[in-house]
Design a binder for these strands. Structure first.
Lengths: 155, 155
DNA sequence: CGTGCCTTGTTATGTTATAACATACGCTCT
DNA sequence: AGAGCGTATGTTATAACATAACAAGGCACG
């Protein structure tokens, strides 16, 4: 399992893979990847850093695609609901999904230096505690904060 | 490891244990458990549910201990920094620590029905992915959302 | 062609959080 | 006692994040 984001990689492939995956998934599931939604996904894909909803909105506004908060939140909500993006709770921000199309339980490595985020996976670590408590887990947020390789060298 | 919070238990012992532990820790570490800080800890301890900063502030205001947001945020910051309370990222809320005094990496079971939160522990699940990526983890947030035993019966 | 559903546009407001500066309190050193 | 210092509190203002509610457009399907 690799954690894409901090390593050098062919980023244009990230973008095109994610877009085409989203197109396929939408076609298959009768979902509409409208211009705003598609553009928001592209904006998130431009970097592996998390963007706040208002950062996204500023981009949309500059391009004439919308200027009011609900425009951004709706598009982000669509992308998150359908697995094309994830919300980073620790940053109140959003990031494009690095494993498009896969049904997955994501976990994140968040650099406090450069705010880049790498997505990886983790096996749910709370199963035992939950079953002892009779608690039914529906979803687990796992977010590690720290420093990426580049920011460890020059903090 | 038990996950205190959803089970029946002697809650007054929770409260007094946590307060006395905080007093001892503050005395030992030359920290000041001032009236506002102590009262905020008591407010958090009154239930195992997470409270928003403005909920806490409303309580303080009713008691004449402060009415402006920084009052609550400072006290909560003090408690979190010193391990007497935890921030629940998924709720933008705060909860008293259930393992006072212990140096620990907490994890949480959050009931979406009654908003109670149980604190437990989990071994850091991202060590392997992080070391592969060269990422230095400083802290890991683990928060499971779901239903507690009571809310599964009557949702 | 009209009805229904999804999407978008817009206004307004609610909620969470912090920057910045002023004041007060307690301690120690002389 | 009084000066100096560090921590805590009081207060104003605003930043940052998020959603409720309603109006209007567009498209598909019968």
């Amino acid at each position: 399992m690799t954690a894409t984001g901090f390593d050098r990689h062919d980023h244009s492939a990230c973008v095109s893979d994610a877009i085409s995956s989203a197109e396929q998934h939408c076609a298959a599931a009768d979902l509409r990847l409208t211009p705003v939604r598609r553009r928001v996904l592209e904006i998130l894909l431009e970097s592996h850093a998390a963007l706040g909803a208002y950062d996204v909105l500023a981009r949309l506004d500059a391009e004439g695609l919308g200027s009011k908060p609900p425009v951004a939140y709706r598009a982000l909500g669509f992308l998150v609901d359908n697995g094309f993006a994830h919300r980073i709770e620790g940053l109140n921000a959003f990031i494009a999904c690095a494993h498009p199309g896969a049904d997955h339980a994501p976990a994140f490595l968040i650099c406090r230096g450069c705010h880049k985020v790498a997505e990886t996976r983790a096996t749910a670590p709370l199963g035992q505690a939950a079953s002892q408590a009779g608690f039914a887990i529906e979803q687990t947020v796992i977010e590690a904060q720290g420093l990426c390789p580049a920011c460890q060298v020059q903090p």
